[in-house]
């Protein structure tokens, strides 16, 4: 971020600077996306051996060499016979048309494969983000700066849950609530009942992480003079926490929500796998197993895109909401 060198009176109007800053951020995000796409494109070239041979072998389930005549249609279908630079330009411009290439195994557009399966994953991710926030804010409000034992309990819980690997939480939840107590179905469904455990699997560690960040900030805010002022005005402790402290203390955690969305989407791969729930994660694991590189790159790129766009939105929303950022 650049600081305005000109004195206020001489400088351009603030909305122009805000708009300029926003445009710059959008442009940067677009460049990051193109760069990410370049990485996934060149990664595809690292497939050992000849790609057309690999695709034919995948189809026939054999491992053999083919004649040039046999390889020609495959090379033509995927465009391997064209110069690298035109393949690259095609790939990058294709992204803007919503084209992520063709699957090596399913022989249909990657965008179509993703479109078919992303619904349940988005539901899972969004529900997990909301649940994580509710858990994090709830636990922070209840335990921060209370009696020592209560505060310690809250921060221990956060430190513990934040470092739990999702596959383990998933397995424990599955064994306890689905196998033993039979409250939820064992085999993944996209029904509301089947969604509860996968959502908790993703939400519990994220809540621990968001809680740690929120707690630090909450403790700082409660020591601020304006909190003391509010208390001397006779405001109750609950009101101080809800009306004054909470608003300030969630700010850093909101910044992390863009990052969290990316983390949740990759966590969804594991959660869907544990519960056998349909979604993009299942497609991804199958694609990695069958070495279907275009589908894997496509999904990875979509997740990277979600991450970049979410961060951009958070960033832009900030400059609008927080006047302190606009000034600088």
């Amino acid at each position: 971020m650049t600081t305005a060198v000109l004195p206020r009176a001489l400088s351009v109007p603030s909305w122009v600077r805000t708009a300029r800053g926003a445009l710059l951020k959008i442009a940067t995000a677009a460049i990051v996306l193109v760069a990410a796409a370049s990485i996934t494109f060149f990664a595809q070239l690292l497939v050992p051996g000849d790609r057309a041979t690999a695709i034919l072998n995948q189809q026939t389930g054999r491992a053999q060499q083919y004649t040039t005549a046999e390889l020609a249609p495959v090379n033509a279908q995927f465009g391997f016979d064209r110069p690298l630079i035109s393949q690259y330009l095609d790939y990058v411009t294709g992204l803007f048309r919503g084209d992520l290439g063709t699957s090596y195994t399913q022989h249909r557009p990657v965008t179509e494969i993703i479109g078919d399966q992303i619904g349940p994953s988005l539901v899972l991710t969004a529900a997990a983000l909301v649940t994580a926030w509710v858990l994090a804010v709830g636990i922070t409000l209840l335990t921060v700066k209370r009696r020592r034992a209560v505060s310690a309990l809250g921060s221990t819980w956060e430190a513990l849950t934040a470092s739990l690997p999702p596959y383990w939480i998933g397995v424990v939840l599955l064994v306890v609530f689905a196998v033993q107590l039979r409250i939820f179905p064992v085999i993944g469904e996209t029904s509301a009942r089947g969604t509860v455990l996968p959502v908790l699997t993703l939400a519990i560690p994220l809540a621990g992480f968001l809680g740690q960040v929120t707690r630090d900030e909450f403790e700082k805010v409660l020591d601020q003079p304006f909190i003391t002022t509010a208390r001397t005005r006779g405001m109750s402790d609950t009101a101080v926490r809800l009306r004054h402290a909470l608003r300030h203390s969630v700010v850093p955690a909101i910044t992390l929500s863009g990052w969290a969305l990316g983390a949740l989407l990759s966590g969804a791969v594991i959660a869907e796998n544990v519960f056998g729930r349909p979604g993009i994660g299942q497609v991804l694991v199958t694609a990695v197993n069958t070495r279907d590189v275009p589908t894997v790159s496509g999904i990875v790129l979509v997740v990277a895109g979600v991450y970049v766009i979410a961060n951009l939105v958070v960033d832009l929303a900030y400059t609008v909401v927080d006047p302190r950022l606009r000034a600088s």
Partner: peptide, 17 residues
């Protein structure tokens, strides 16, 4: 740019390759 790729997904891409 590298940060835009979650660790697990980047690892899966390499394993696919």
């Amino acid at each position: 740019v590298a940060f835009a790729f979650p660790v697990l997904l980047l690892a899966l891409l390499l394993i696919a390759i």
